[in-house]
Design a protein around this nucleic acid. Sequence first.
DNA 1: CGCTACGTTGACGTCCCTCAATTTCGGTGG
DNA 2: CCACCGAAATTGAGGGACGTCAACGTAGCG
Lengths: 240, 240
Amino acid sequence: MAALDSLTRLTERMRSATLFAGLPDAEVQRIAAAAHLKQMPAGEYFFLQGDPAERIYLLVEGRLKLSQSAADGQQALLRVIGAGSLFGAVALAQAKEYPVSAQAAADSQAVYWTPLELMEFVKKSPELAINAMKVMAEHVQEFQDRYLQLATERVERRLARTLLRLAAQTGKKTDAGVLIDLPLTRQDLAEMSGTTLFSVSRILNQWEEQGLVAVGRTKVVVVFPHGLVRIAEDLPVKKE
Amino acid sequence: MAALDSLTRLTERMRSATLFAGLPDAEVQRIAAAAHLKQMPAGEYFFLQGDPAERIYLLVEGRLKLSQSAADGQQALLRVIGAGSLFGAVALAQAKEYPVSAQAAADSQAVYWTPLELMEFVKKSPELAINAMKVMAEHVQEFQDRYLQLATERVERRLARTLLRLAAQTGKKTDAGVLIDLPLTRQDLAEMSGTTLFSVSRILNQWEEQGLVAVGRTKVVVVFPHGLVRIAEDLPVKKE
DNA sequence: CGCTACGTTGACGTCCCTCAATTTCGGTGG
DNA sequence: CCACCGAAATTGAGGGACGTCAACGTAGCG
């Protein structure tokens, strides 16, 4: 029954993904049945930047870091994703190589299809293609936005945005505030915000003094989100 | 016969666009026949950021600037495109609004379809969907790259890349070097590189002294591309 | 209990943004 | 054709944000 359980759980996850939105249940189940399973312990990689792009993945359990590195080793942490998210979707667009690396931030399991397998389903269900375009269009927009921000905003603001985004994505309500449920080093936050770990450290401590956040080693709790929003929106920080 | 001429010219343009690659000629012609024409004098806009996204355009003649602006008026010039390029493709992904503004940099003409019209063709030709995904995947990658560059590189390098990209895209060979065939102010170049017009001015003049470029008002000629490449790659600039 | 990765803090430098004052260019109309 | 105007561009001074580097804590893990 384990197999059956996992299959029903899979179709559930799939239904929550934009890619499969609006598809008839029967079709989703057929696609689920064609999926392959892949487990990955924390710290290891589903694929590395430059690997041949021969699989489209859906994360079923765990957390992933998607990062890109330049020739000189400089890195950017582009996104962090949780269960229900697609990754490696470029393979569907017949890209030759993955443009990013996908590292498991926690023990994770994902299912995957080859481009050929998914393509069969695309031919039967054009919605699938539309949905894939939606996913990609969202990404284009997200990066255009972040590009603009990086070009025009200062570090504080970008870091505030990063934390708010993370809180929204992976936030876990606790009595102390919203915990970002993912071990993130200062370096990680720096790579997500386009700055250095030193600046992140200074700013976070400053915010802690102001009661906006509570920080620990690889841990951040957003205590007073509205304060961060004010910083992100570049409004004067309210005092009372 | 003007109509016939323009139709054959249109199908030619379409064939050079990734979106229609690999489609049977007959199908391309059917799609061409369904296109609507739109002329735009230099300086005016095909659409503004925030306008409802109800058309997918193909530029047939002229040049376009695609730019995005933040709430506070800060701008980024995301891309400059020439004939044969698609724009407003997000409409295909059923986005509600255009995320950028599209301004004619020269007198331009474009054809367009509504999402509904193109969708009909998508249903018949899944290749069209695949191609659309390819186009979008390319954009995602481009912006991921540029994001990384903006985050990790200094102004000189970014400006060098911008010029090289422009020279490759819109370059026109002259005996003095490669002319960037498009009136671009220092401000425009600044917005494309994520810096200020002052920095652009200083750097360009410095490069002119070194014989790398020749600059004029709203005009840049790349005289010694290899020198710019060295800067873009962060190698020491060769002297002889 | 010591090693290692993570984090903090200070000093310092510099890149590049900001702002203001001019100059140059190109077009337009008298 | 020249004078004039506005947009584009230059140049300099000044300062501030933030990156760089070094030295030092500190927490967690084997």
